[in-house]
């Protein structure tokens, strides 16, 4: 016991130790259930692929990681950039960003509309917004397919009214994926936005008008800075599942317009290349984490930076 050990400090240390002890079962579960699989994935990505799927556990190999960005020519063993994979990466990023932007553009006025209804009506609107959550994502995606396919609602109307002579090919294009993801993830944007707008004190809006700000200035200088945490939360909630989306690109994008989720599935399934699948999975995760860090850092900084 050193001279600085006062009774208060000893008690404090005791308390800290007890806290760790008491929460250890929960920590164990979190570790095994959440972090454990990640380590399995990481290990798989450094193993040689098994002949019929799976991995060869005792054979170290970087082929999986190699395969993420490069492909080896089967005939002369030269290395080329894996165009297909890069294309899929870029498409996933592009579509996810666009989905985030579109849901933000639609979700913001929607959330604002709900937040400005009388208190009683707000619950009804929120209830309506959450209804899609009760339906299986597969069913919702097939419903979207029904809307956009060549004989679907949109094209039937377009052709019947003579706006176009031929049905417009939307299904099995990137547009279809974009429509689908926007539709599926919109509630994830609206709910956090609504939560932050509902807390917004509308007297601040009046104060803005009183101080000579017009509608646009009130929106830009008062409402957006204050509901920014909701915008960030909504964007993260939409961007992350978009990046790993599997069902929507599969059903609406067809086999050609794959996204990362489909590519990963392909490696674990028909591709029989588990190490590559594992490496892509981890790349996806790193991508998400980098995006999050950049976004949070950027948003956090610009928050305190209004009119220098």
């Amino acid at each position: 016991m050193s001279a600085s050990d006062t009774p208060a400090r000893i008690a404090q240390r005791q308390k800290t130790r007890n806290r760790w002890l008491l929460s250890s079962p929960a920590l164990l579960i979190v570790f095994v259930a959440a972090i454990g699989p990640l380590f399995v994935m990481l290990a798989y990505s450094f193993m040689a692929k098994g002949d019929y799927g799976g991995v060869k556990p005792w054979e170290f190999s970087t082929d999986g990681w190699f395969g993420v960005f490069f492909s080896r020519d089967i005939f002369d063993d030269t290395l080329t950039i894996a165009d297909a994979n890069v294309t899929i990466f870029l498409r996933s990023l592009r579509l996810s960003l666009l989905t985030t932007l579109i849901t933000l553009a639609i979700g913001f006025p929607t959330a604002f509309f709900i937040a400005t209804r009388p208190a009683r009506m707000r619950d009804v609107w929120v209830f309506l917004i959450t209804i899609p959550f009760w339906t299986n994502i597969l069913i919702r995606t097939f419903a979207m397919q029904e809307v956009i396919r060549n004989e679907g609602i949109i094209n039937t109307v377009l052709v019947a009214t003579g706006i176009t002579s031929e049905p417009v090919q939307i299904l099995y294009t990137d547009w279809a994926i974009l429509f689908g993801m926007t539709y599926v993830y919109l509630p994830l944007m609206v709910l956090p936005l609504y939560a932050s707008m509902e807390k917004l004190d509308f007297r601040l809006v009046e104060a803005g008008y009183d101080l000579y700000a017009n509608r646009i200035q009130v929106l830009r200088r008062i409402i957006i800075p204050i509901v920014k945490p909701g915008m960030i939360a909504g964007s993260i909630l939409v961007f992350i599942p978009s990046l790993g989306a599997y069902v929507t690109p599969r059903v609406l994008g067809g086999g050609k317009n794959m996204m990362l989720g489909n590519l990963i599935e392909l490696q674990f399934g028909a591709g029989r290349n588990w190490p590559l699948g594992a490496a892509i999975s981890i790349t996806l995760m790193v991508l998400v984490m980098v995006a999050l860090l950049v976004y949070v850092r950027y948003a956090g900084r610009s928050g305190g930076q209004h009119h220098g």
Binding site: R203, L204, E206, A207, G208, L211, A213, I222, I226, G303
Partner: peptide
Amino acid sequence: PYKRPVNTVFQSYALFPH
């Protein structure tokens, strides 16, 4: 209101929190 040369001190103050 934004075109009136009149300003208000609100009962709740309504200061901008950000």
